[in-house]
Design a binder for these strands. Sequence first.
DNA 1: GCCATTAGTGTAATCACAACACGAAATGAA
DNA 2: TTCATTTCGTGTTGTGATTACACTAATGGC
Lengths: 230, 230
Amino acid sequence: MTDGFTYRWPRPALTVDVALFGLQAGQLSVLLIRRRLPPFEGWWALPGGFVRLDEGLEWAARRELEEEAGVRPAWIEQIGAFGAPGRDPRERVVSVAWWALLRADEHAPVAASDASEVRWHPVASLPALAFDHATMVTAALHRLRQRAWESAIGAELLGEQFTLGELQTVQESLLGHPLDKRNFRRRMNESGLLVEAGEARSEGPGRPARLFRLGDRMRGAPLGSTRENE
Amino acid sequence: MTDGFTYRWPRPALTVDVALFGLQAGQLSVLLIRRRLPPFEGWWALPGGFVRLDEGLEWAARRELEEEAGVRPAWIEQIGAFGAPGRDPRERVVSVAWWALLRADEHAPVAASDASEVRWHPVASLPALAFDHATMVTAALHRLRQRAWESAIGAELLGEQFTLGELQTVQESLLGHPLDKRNFRRRMNESGLLVEAGEARSEGPGRPARLFRLGDRMRGAPLGSTRENE
DNA sequence: GCCATTAGTGTAATCACAACACGAAATGAA
DNA sequence: TTCATTTCGTGTTGTGATTACACTAATGGC
């Protein structure tokens, strides 16, 4: 952004790191990989890696998820850049952190490339993490809960169609606390985010539940009732 | 974040760009510099520049403000990373964007280094901007207004001590719409962010106003009443 | 001392959110 | 077929927060 020479200076390395969330047995969990190489050899870390010259940041994040764990998130959003000098002991590395959601029906992640192991860890009991990844997870969780509170983002964890009961259960898992059934359903109805889609009954007994899907272009949109600042 | 060789790959350049806001004659304005060199020669742009190997991101942002305009912001916060390939026609450049506030009593900015001119532009009427800086300004404004709504950030634009009337005026300028006097004062009182600090009368006639200052470590903290998600 | 100017204060109406219990529709077993 | 079980689906009331709104208090200038 200065003259034609400036951009030949030595430059920091640029990486992306992704906090990928999913539900494992109803537990909100983060996908971690165990590092096979130094630094932090043997430690758990977020999947991530270097940004290539020709790819966008979000693309880089998606590619790393695919390469390192073989998964494609249903939702991904940037958290911000983490660039404290010394956060990587090797050299100066600035990392753009992301958070993402993986649908439950996606196939399980598999270890690949730089990882000796890939595993879901419940957010309630995380191990020590490499680099500043603990900070990133904290920030990611914060954003996730904010989104879950204000926008039914949990729908991204379900299939194309889902019942209100399913959606509520997912949202509760994301938020980490129970929701009132009637209030939840009212909010969803009034939000205008959902549209009906037939009828069905999933598990054995009980009255069949109506099916819904996300309305067009409603990904992550705020509920109608949420306070905004003009 | 992979093996010892990976970080020798060619890497994107890394810059910071800052949307610095201030009040000019009561108008919320952004500081822009006119570029003296290609690309976008002669266009208005946000101050910014390359990140050095040994400095943190926030430091880089502050340094560029000082170098290019000779100012030190009272508040600065990250917006996020902008890294679409092609956003800089020269080569791949990823930029970490920031927004900042400059106190009214700071001395006026001066043109330096890469800029042929430095000027405040009211946000209501911005010129076309270089690169993707228009997007950054939009995002910055959004965050600024959010903060102003939920946290009396306007106090950063005033001196150490200020009256509630002054604070309200500033907040109104930031938000872009008027606030109710009594409701504003109640919120401030209940927030617990402010503490008294003597007594004074500023301009000519009228009842003297009480002076306040920000309570310890209350920078940008949310008002007590603001809804949060647990 | 009177007028102009700015600071400071309380209450009523409205709205959003939280709490809460039962009837409806299906399944499966007796 | 009847009954027990299970899950789905629905409305109202109370409470706390936000909004709207008008006058008195204290000073400076004439």
